[in-house]
Structure formats: C-alpha cells, structure tokens
Design a protein around this nucleic acid. Structure first.
Lengths: 133, 133
DNA sequence: CACGTATATTCCCATAAGCGTATATATAAC
DNA sequence: GTTATATATACGCTTATGGGAATATACGTG
C-alpha cells in the first residue's frame, strides 16, 4: 500500500480531504464543490480509501465518505521528530508568516482556516522554559 | 516550486530529513549512512534545498546541510485542520499527548509508553489564547 | 420492465520522477 | 602545475501517475 505521504502529495486529494474535514459528503457533492469530473473524484476516493484516509457507507446509490484518523496520525508521528526543532524558530516564523499571509493550496477554499492561529502554537506551546530533567 | 507535500512523498528524502533531524551532515556522511549513491543524495538535497527544507554552508569542498523550519511548519498547518478530528478518538489522543511529553526531553524516537499523566497543561488544547510576545 | 441517477471502472495517453553512469566543477595537498 | 577528494550536473531510460472519454454496475421509480 502506498505511504500516506504519497497519498497527500496530490493536490486534488488534499482538497477532498479538506472538504471531508468539514463533514461527510457524497461523491457528487465533492464533485460539484471542487469542480472536478466524476471519474476523477471516484478515482481519488478509491486511492484515499485504500490508504485508509476515508471510508464510505452506502446510502441507496450514494456513497457517503468520511475521514478516518489513522493515516493522519502516522503523518503527525513522522512530523513529530521535527517538531522540537522548528519550535525553536516558531516566533521568528510567526512574524514571517504574518507578513506573507499564508494560505492553503488546492482547488478548495478552506473555511476560514487561517493558518497561523494558535493551532500551531498550541502544538508546541511548551517550547518556553527549557526545564531539563 | 513544488509543494512540501510532494517533497516528502519520496522515501529517500524523508530518510535524509530524518538524518538531518539529528544534526547537520555533509553529503558524504548522508551517502554512507543511508547507503545511497552520491548523485542520488546530491539530487535529493537539491530538491530539498529548493523547497526550503534544508540549507547548506560551505566547508572547503564539503557542504554541510541542516534543516530549515518553515516547510515543516506548513505541513503542520495543513495537518492542523484534521487534528481536532482525530483527537476525538481517545486512544489516539493519548498517544499524541504521550508523544508530546516524550519529545520534550529531546527524545528522537517516540515510544509507545502507556504512561498517561497527560492532559498536562493542555499541551495542544487550543483554547489557551496565546499571547503574542 | 425501461429509464434516470449515482458511482465505479477501464483504456489510452502524456508527463514527470527517480535511478545509474558518466562527467563537470571546486578545493585541497603535494 | 598534477592528483585526490567532495559535490554537482547532464543524459538516457524506465516506470508510475493523473486526466479524459467511454462504459459498466447498482439502485430507485414509475
């Protein structure tokens, strides 16, 4: 099976995941919201499903897709080994990002997910205070 | 420029980043440690450099490479929109917090330790308004 | 049953990415 | 200077991936 990293390398797939982060959706809804062709959506959903990013339930002819947590955890686990490192730079980075108002790529408009909120900071909230033990 | 997601889709590049997470290295050191051919290492380093993941300083004929924080921050920002979702799964949350605790003392590899005195200071709990510096 | 809707799958093609081999550039040492 | 070392780049090849168009499958309705 493909690694989670390869899966999220594709912009349309990230867009789909972004949509599903809000709530579950049918294929047609994704198709319209992201303005992708139906086969494209289905194909990407298949890849996402096989990689464990999403699961589907049947509703008549529809398939309702929703996220599954595990692959995200894997990604986060990998990132963790660098988190301590970039935490040291977070303040400088923040100033930087403040200027260049970052935003997500992809064909999908995130719902007001303004990046440099506390999400980031929260994650490494403790980088102050180097209490060694 | 390629997105950070595409960059880390490549296993060898993730390996290189992993090595550099420990400390800076020359091309030859990476080459030997990961048993990759020299051109392969150089090519991947080029990609990583152009994507802002690493930077190099010159030391005679050597180039010493080290990590840069920004792309990791971007990855984390994207992941953030899903973090709340997967945190809802309790044991996942536990692992997450567990890891956060461990990484604090400079550990490199996360351990599956089941000790939970987590919940400590809501390490990544979002409300907790960060005051700017 | 026939028909419409929703989704999945197949086929073909073009583009790109990674690898190995060979070569180029830069610096150091003699 | 010449030679050795360290790294970068170019070329050719192979393979994987994503998209479009067409088609297949499943379900619902009358």
């Amino acid at each position: 099976m493909e690694t989670a990293f390869v899966i999220i390398a594709e912009p349309n797939r990230r867009a789909i995941l972004g949509v599903l982060a809000v709530s579950e959706r049918s294929v047609g809804e994704i198709e319209r919201q992201l303005r992708m062709t139906q086969p494209t959506v289905s194909k990407h959903l298949r890849v996402l499903r096989e990689a464990g990013f999403v699961e589907a339930t049947v509703d008549a002819q529809r398939r309702l897709y929703r996220l599954r947590p595990q692959p995200f955890q894997e990604l986060d686990n990998w990132l963790a080994q660098f988190r301590r490192f970039w935490s040291a730079h977070v303040d400088a980075l923040e100033r930087h990002l403040d200027r260049m108002e970052h935003q997500q790529d992809g064909a999908f408009k995130p719902t007001k997910n303004k990046t440099h909120e506390k999400t980031t900071r929260g994650a490494n909230r403790k980088h102050h205070k180097g209490e060694k033990k």
